[in-house]
């Protein structure tokens, strides 16, 4: 077993508060930096959403966290120890689902889990069968446990992948797109599962492009685009990087726009019968009152708190094309 001298460094206590910490993490393929100077800080106990468009470097980052890929530069600390040096000590506490599930098609779900369980450093052979059964039940696969993996549907495969990640009590779960290919019930069950695991005290890194999913379960998030981190922090503070907008539906868009401008609102935009503007420090109710007092015929007035999606789109761009 490797010793980890880094753990005695003065920064060790601060590390306890972080389940994952990367410093200047970089991976270059050929000439391009696929992950570029990434400083990710995942607080212990958080459910951390790792968001980014396709090809932004999420999976590559996860591979580096787990010691599958060697960083071109920078370092990784996982559960307070540096990777990949301390892999044998750290990884038994980490459950993973990286870029989709992968199993032996010619073995049943149960046999697949048994093999994965036996591959660990501490096989605990006597309790293996119970552990496998419990994991299968946890993801709702008990009925299909003895079917060959070959015959599993995409959603069943994903469930089996999660079962493998949950085989043992984990203090950190790293899940890369865990609801890929799942039906709505499955998606909801996964969300509940993540909440339950987090309630038991585990840290979860949830990698996803599904913003709603992240919004529903995560306490923190980071946004990555083109390999660079553009934002990270508690979900609330991420939302606040984008401003609340009000939208007025009226027959007199010109006067409405003038009133809003006088109040000091920004980014005023007119589209058909709609006038929208970004609040600075004004309260929406004051804007509505001012409009009515100025004789603007208000058909509807909406004030929308920014969603994570707004932040996300603002930071990563609207484009649909894969960035590279």
């Amino acid at each position: 077993m490797q010793t980890d001298p880094m753990n005695l460094a003065p920064d060790a206590p601060a590390d306890d508060a972080l389940a994952i910490r990367t410093t200047g993490l970089t991976k270059r393929f050929g000439g391009t930096a696929v992950v570029d100077d990434l400083n990710l800080q995942v607080p212990t106990g958080s459910v951390f959403g790792f968001l980014g468009p396709n090809g932004s470097g999420k999976t590559t980052t996860i591979r580096m966290l787990l010691g599958l890929v060697n960083p071109s530069a920078g370092s990784v600390r996982l559960l307070g120890r540096s990777m990949p040096e301390a892999a044998n000590r750290v990884l038994p506490n980490v459950g993973t689902l990286v870029e989709g599930p992968a199993f032996y098609p010619w073995l049943s779900g149960r046999r697949n889990l048994t093999r994965i369980d036996a591959a660990g450093p501490d096989p605990l052979r006597t309790t293996r069968a119970d552990r496998v059964d419990a994991a299968l039940a946890q993801v709702g696969l008990s009925a299909a446990a003895d079917k060959r993996y070959r015959a599993y549907s995409l959603g069943m495969r994903q469930r089996l992948g999660l079962a493998a990640a949950l085989l043992r009590p984990r203090s950190l779960l790293i899940l890369d797109e865990p609801t890929n290919g799942m039906d709505p019930q499955g998606t909801r069950e996964i969300r509940n599962l993540i909440r339950a695991v987090a309630a038991d005290g585990a840290t979860v890194l949830l990698c996803s492009h599904l913003l709603s999913e992240v919004e529903q379960v995560c306490t923190h998030a980071a946004i990555i685009t083109l390999g660079r981190l553009v934002a990270q922090g508690p979900l609330e503070s991420l939302r606040e990087t984008t401003t609340t907008r009000v939208t007025v539906e009226t027959d007199d868009t010109e006067r409405a726009a003038a009133v809003l401008e006088r109040l000091g609102l920004m980014q005023i935009a007119v589209a058909g019968a709609l006038v929208s503007a970004a609040l600075d420090s004004q309260r929406p109710e004051d804007c509505c009152k001012a409009l009515v007092l100025a004789d603007v015929g208000v058909r509807s007035f909406v004030s929308r708190r920014p969603s994570l999606e707004d932040t996300y789109v603002e930071l990563t761009g609207e484009g649909f094309d894969v960035a590279r």
């Binding site: 990884l91 990286v98 989709g100 992968a102 098609p105 450093p121």
Partner: peptide, 14 residues
């Protein structure tokens, strides 16, 4: 090819 290698190695299976 199956992708099982990444799961074996992160068990970890040295």
């Amino acid at each position: 090819n199956l992708g099982t290698l990444r799961y074996l190695l992160t068990r970890p299976y040295g």
